[in-house]
Design a protein around this nucleic acid. Structure first.
Lengths: 198, 198
DNA sequence: CCTGAAAGCTACGCCTGTTAGCCAAAAGTG
DNA sequence: CACTTTTGGCTAACAGGCGTAGCTTTCAGG
């Protein structure tokens, strides 16, 4: 009986394939049996490379969050102000539409206390950092910056979540609605900065 | 052996208890075994009242959606314009914070084709109707109204989803951030109506 | 070449949901 | 009141999930 030549990285890669193939429910439907099936291996064999299903899910989540952060960072380099906000939002939505399963994995917040999730917390913080940097040109004070980042994340995540969940019945005009939402967001952030000048 | 005196309604009620006790993950963690445990009954006995776990979940989802729609409707009677938008948003968030499990149940969109989910589709449509009515005073044309409703749902749902999921690390200022988000939303919808006057 | 670690495997336990079939309790009927 | 039918429980069993224990085989290093 020859070996399959698995490794921790290979198992995570196969898990990502399973998540990708499962659509928006791919992350919730991730199962060790499916990963083992793709690897051509019996399920318990995976435990030689991964501690548990929960750990594998954390690994997938970390990978997806890293990708999402990178996409946001890539989209905003060389941009500032409203341009940066729109580019960031489109990058987020684009990632979510292209990788619905991975995007769902992105939305599990890491446990603030678990030391095993330190890396996860760090990359999540980097993502917020990217958003904050995109808003730098608005010159907001710290507490308003927090409000603005939260508003941006809420607007985009809410839209994408509803879109992926089938919450928008009329398929037409979804892109246009997103642009309208971004208009509101940009105008709102701009107003925030204006009101701050004494 | 005495009977437990169950009924379909009683099973759904117990399922709602399980969902409530499970926090934000209560809906995902709903299990027939837990419901049976609360009813003091063996798991297979539930099948005399409910066709499957999926059907029970649909029932819970229908109930929760009905409640959320009612809360929105109650909050907006006698209000219009920005006042109505804010009241609706606060009603949505209030329901989500008070009943995180049921709110999660609210977010599963009914299958557009399944005839068994006709009631679910109807009450979901009523919820959108309530939102559209709250925006009536802005006098938006139809396509802009769709954009505005989507923006409102996206902003509030996104905020609540991140809040419940632990996405906001700093516990302070969350209420204030929500109010800032609503300021942006109201201003954005107002701007939509202004731009429409030729 | 030999030894030991690593990577597979099977078997098992416990948890889900679900179906089948049995039996007693309740409800309807002459 | 007695009898029959329906109904709401039960146990047994199966499939499929995660996870553990222990065995065997492969591979790498001395």
């Amino acid at each position: 009986m020859p070996r399959a030549g698995l490794s921790r990285e290979a198992v995570v890669r196969l898990a990502l394939e399973v998540v990708d193939d499962g659509g928006a429910a791919g992350f919730a439907g991730l199962t060790l049996a499916q990963v083992a099936g793709r690897a051509g291996v019996a399920t318990p064999s995976l435990y030689k490379h991964v501690g548990s299903l929960a750990e594998l899910r954390r690994e997938v989540s970390l990978q997806a969050t890293t990708e999402l952060t990178a996409a946001g960072s890539r989209a905003t380099v060389g941009r500032s102000g409203p341009d940066a906000v729109r580019a960031l939002a489109h990058a987020w939505r684009g990632y979510a539409l292209q990788h619905p399963g991975r995007y769902a994995a992105t939305q599990v917040a890491p446990d603030p206390d678990d030391p095993a999730e330190a890396a996860h917390r760090q990359v999540a913080a980097q993502g917020v950092e990217v958003a904050a940097a995109a808003l730098r040109a608005f010159d907001l004070p710290d507490d308003r910056l927090v409000d603005a980042v939260r508003a941006a994340r809420s607007a985009v995540h809410g839209f994408v979540a509803l879109e992926l969940g089938g919450g928008f019945r009329l398929p037409q005009g979804v892109d246009a609605s997103f642009d309208v939402l971004l208009d509101m967001l940009v105008a709102g952030i701009t107003a925030l900065s204006v009101h701050e000048t004494p």
